[in-house]
Structures are given as structure tokens and as C-alpha cells.
């Protein structure tokens, strides 16, 4: 367990002990490799461990879901990744998956079933909202009370899967003032990273999409911009840097705000 000091349980190890955890926590590539989003992964793991949730991660056995390949037209690569992942997931007899990425969420929930991977799929905002509703999570400090927070809807939680409220419920639970951007919920503007855009330069145009969206967020005069997607996190962070606002306005995933307010 040398390189695993947080004692986040790993599926293969539990399997060796004949244990099958209730949940698989699917970390995702951004959650594992992106320096900024690793903090989100940690915040969420702390909450899971704090609540004594029976879960494990795949660790070294996790692979890209194939989502960016599929949306960039490479169906062959997507299905290769999907079939390999499904084989691993099914071999561990996994029934419930929690993911901190809306793109992974969408693929697991909507696209793996046709290929033989049928799971109950839960986005971390949905899981946290359940925990709040069941009163398992209690906000312990008032660090965010009356703070002005705006929420950016990830396309793949919002329009793609019509969950606009889970993340907002969490922000309200913190006692913060939720202010909406001009374009919000079903008419929210994309951050610009979906459909494979995360991995390429934008096509020629007048402006970058992430700048347009960041400006919209800044218009609200909110002190913090919350989101729940690793790609949105990258884009909005870049936008804040571009506008020289990275020292004044902060960009968080809702789970980070919640973990802070729980004193974790």
C-alpha cells in the first residue's frame, strides 16, 4: 500500500479477499491525472471514507471510457475501450458506479448498456445530494453562508441527462446565495470542451467559447464559480486566467465546497 497512503480501497485487492464493495468509484482520466481535478477526486474520496461508504476504485486497471474517441468519430476505438472496460467491470461483478465526470456518467448510463454493460450509474453530485437528503452529510461550518456562487451546468449532466438540480441543491445546502448566469440550466452555454474539443485547438472564429462563458459568469458578480465536470473546470480556470481574475474569483467543483464545509 506504499503508493496508496489515503487507503482508498482498490478493487483487485478487495477481490483477492473475496469482497465485493457496494460501489465502484470511477475516478476517470482527469480525476487521476489532471493536477487541478485530482483535488476534486481527493475531496470526494475524503467524503466517501468519512461516511464509511463501502466502495473501491479500479486503480491501475481503469481505462478511458472511450467517450472522447466516440464523439470525435472513432467508433472503433470507442467500442474497443467499452468492451474491455465492460469485461473488467463485469468480472468484478460491479452493480453501482459513482463517477465524478459527466462524460463518463453519460457513456456508462446511456451507451454501455447496448454493449453489455448495465450498471446503476450515479454522478457524484447525485450521490452527495442523496447523502444530504438522508441527513448523512451535515454542513459543519458556515464558511459559505451568504457567499455569492454561480453554477455552470455541464452539458452532459444538464441537457444530455436533464439533471439541473443535484448540484444546485448542494450549493443551497451550504447556505450560499446561488446566482444564475444569463444562460443557465437547459439554455446554459457550453464551456467549449465537449465533443473532443478538449484535446484540440478550436476552429477559426472570433472568440474562444470558454472566454464567452467565463465573461458570462463574471457578469453575475459571483465570488465563486462552481461546476461538476473536469472539462468545465479546465476551461473556466483558463477563462479566469485569461481575464486576469484568477486571484479574485475562484473556480470549484461542488464537492470541494461541500468537503470544506464538512471540515474535511
Amino acid at each position: 500500500m506504499e503508493n496508496n497512503p489515503l487507503k482508498v480501497p482498490v478493487m483487485a485487492e478487495l477481490h483477492a479477499q473475496d469482497k465485493t464493495p457496494e460501489y465502484l468509484f470511477w475516478v476517470g482520466c482527469a480525476g487521476a491525472y489532471d493536477d487541478r481535478y485530482k483535488k476534486v477526486t481527493r475531496a470526494f474520496s475524503k467524503i466517501l471514507l468519512h461516511l464509511n461508504i463501502d466502495f473501491a476504485i479500479l486503480g491501475n486497471e481503469e481505462r478511458c471510457t472511450g467517450d472522447p474517441a466516440r464523439r470525435a468519430g472513432n467508433e472503433m476505438l470507442f467500442q474497443m475501450m467499452a468492451l474491455m472496460n465492460i469485461e473488467i467491470l463485469n468480472s468484478y461483478n460491479i452493480k453501482k458506479i459513482i463517477t465524478i465526470c459527466p462524460h463518463c456518467y453519460n457513456v456508462f448510463k446511456n451507451e454501455y448498456p447496448e454493449l453489455g454493460g448495465k450498471y446503476e450509474v450515479i454522478h457524484h453530485t447525485q450521490f452527495l445530494r442523496q447523502m444530504i437528503d438522508q441527513e448523512k452529510i451535515k454542513v459543519e461550518n458556515d464558511g459559505y453562508v451568504n457567499k455569492m456562487i454561480t453554477y455552470h451546468d455541464p452539458c452532459y449532466m444538464g441537457r444530455a441527462n436533464e439533471d439541473y438540480e443535484s448540484a444546485r441543491e448542494i450549493i443551497k445546502e451550504l447556505g450560499a446565495d446561488l446566482i444564475e448566469m444569463r444562460r443557465n440550466k437547459s439554455s446554459a452555454l457550453c464551456c467549449g470542451a465537449g465533443g473532443g474539443q478538449m484535446f484540440k485547438e478550436a476552429e477559426e472564429g472570433d472568440k474562444e467559447i470558454f472566454i464567452e462563458r467565463t465573461e458570462e459568469a463574471l457578469e453575475t458578480k459571483a465570488e465563486m464559480i462552481a461546476s461538476s465536470c473536469p472539462f468545465c473546470m479546465t476551461m473556466i480556470t483558463d477563462g479566469l486566467k485569461y481575464k486576469n481574475k484568477e486571484e479574485e474569483i475562484f473556480n470549484y467543483d461542488v464537492v470541494e465546497l461541500l468537503a470544506n464545509s464538512m471540515g474535511l
Binding site: R63, A69, F199
Partner: peptide
């Protein structure tokens, strides 16, 4: 994705690095 199983050039062996140096109550 094909070679490393991730859209970026990182090794699958590094997928647990985020768990290092982390403490919680």
C-alpha cells in the same frame, strides 16, 4: 487512448498518484 488507456500521455501505472500525501479526519 489506444496506447495508454487515457486521452493524455500518462501511464496507467500512475493512476493512483492522486492518493498520495493525503490525510483526512
Amino acid at each position: 487512448i489506444e496506447n495508454n488507456g487515457a486521452p493524455w500521455q500518462y501511464s496507467a501505472e500512475d493512476r493512483l498518484l492522486w492518493t498520495e500525501n493525503l490525510s483526512f479526519k
